[in-house]
């Protein structure tokens, strides 16, 4: 891709690989924050993203949690949407056909409440138009029963990944929760079970109290914290996972600028996802990509992929992927 002709600027190769999927750039719209991009298309071309991750789909339709289910917090927001969605049947008949005209590559996201459910829903996502990978939301922090968070336990994580891998041919991404003491064994379990990549991190469990009404702000009491407030937690999770993984990491959590994205890339992420920042600035993917490219150029790198792990001792070569 890098072309040098005359006085023209050298073009940086922005492509990255997530398993067998190739994204035109390392920016991904995070699950639950972008629908299929249509709402944003009025102010920005969603094709700015290398891929859009769809809202997690469950086997059954779900209404989600009671209201209020979002709350702005310092440098972030809490959400307890509770996986509202139409369920896989409706999704396949009414929404999936439109994916044929998706503005960019699509990563389908699956959430479930049993290993069998994950496998069954994921299997039906395999082969949909423009879907290049399947992300498993094994970490949604909103489901009210503690036992339902697979990503808190290495064995449960591995069981979900293995069951899905058996049923699908697309690359499988395990999306992990930061709400654990040590992310490494869980990330390793996902890798050993055949995951092609991991997404780090899902929202961080948190809550807010309305002191006027003297009750929790969210009807669900707790929710997932996203936005800049969680960025240091997320960067550390990527850093820790990068110590033990050989599969690519999609880093996310509070990315608003190119500099933020570079933190994740240099800590070991191959791609980065942007969620909440789209709400504040729909133009965020354009800014972030431009600034990542500038940084690669400044460092005389011909690819964005070469930024991965620049700050991390596990990336011995200091250029490029492992």
């Amino acid at each position: 891709m890098a072309t040098l002709n005359g006085s023209a600027q050298p073009r940086i190769d922005t492509r990255v690989r997530i398993g067998s999927a190739r994204l035109k750039n390392p920016l991904v719209a995070a699950s639950g924050c972008y629908n299929r991009g249509a709402e944003f298309a009025r102010v920005v071309d969603p094709a700015a993203y290398g891929a859009i991750v769809l809202k997690s789909i469950t086997a059954q339709p779900r209404l989600g949690n009671a209201m209020p289910r979002v709350a702005p917090t310092p440098a972030g927001m809490l959400n307890a949407i509770g996986l509202q969605g139409p369920g896989i049947e409706y999704f396949l008949t009414h929404e999936a056909p439109a994916l044929a005209s998706a503005p960019t590559a699509i990563i389908a996201s699956v959430a479930g409440f049993s290993v069998a459910e994950f496998a069954a829903v994921a299997a039906r996502m395999d082969g949909l138009p423009n879907v290049v990978a399947i992300e498993l939301d094994v970490s949604c922090p909103n489901v009210d029963r503690e036992g339902e968070c697979f990503a808190a336990d290495p064995d449960s994580t591995a069981a979900v990944v293995a069951a899905v891998k058996e049923r699908v041919s697309l690359p499988v991404i395990a999306k992990l929760t930061p709400n654990v003491a040590d992310i490494k064994p869980i990330a390793l379990a996902a890798q050993s079970a055949g995951a092609d990549a991991v997404s780090l991190i899902n929202a961080v469990r948190g809550m807010a109290v309305d002191v006027t009404a003297a009750r929790p702000v969210l009807a669900n009491v707790s929710g997932g914290l996203s936005g800049p407030a969680i960025r240091p937690i997320a960067v550390n999770a990527v850093w820790e996972a990068a110590k033990v993984l050989r599969i690519p990491i999609i880093g996310m959590g509070g990315i608003e600028t190119g500099r933020d994205a570079l933190e994740f890339l240099m800590a070991g992420a191959t791609a980065v996802a942007i969620g909440t920042a789209n709400f504040r600035d729909p133009l965020v993917p354009l800014r972030v990509l431009r600034d990542i490219e500038k940084e690669a150029e400044r460092r005389k790198l011909s690819t964005v992929a070469a930024l991965t792990g620049l700050a991390h001792p596990s990336f011995a070569t200091k250029t490029g992927t492992r």
């Binding site: 629908n35 209201m67 959400n79």
Partner: peptide, 16 residues
């Protein structure tokens, strides 16, 4: 009125 997240129709935080 509800508490809004995205104000754009994508977060599903403001449903009635």
């Amino acid at each position: 009125e509800e508490t809004f997240g995205c104000s754009l129709g994508t977060c599903w935080g403001c449903v009635v």
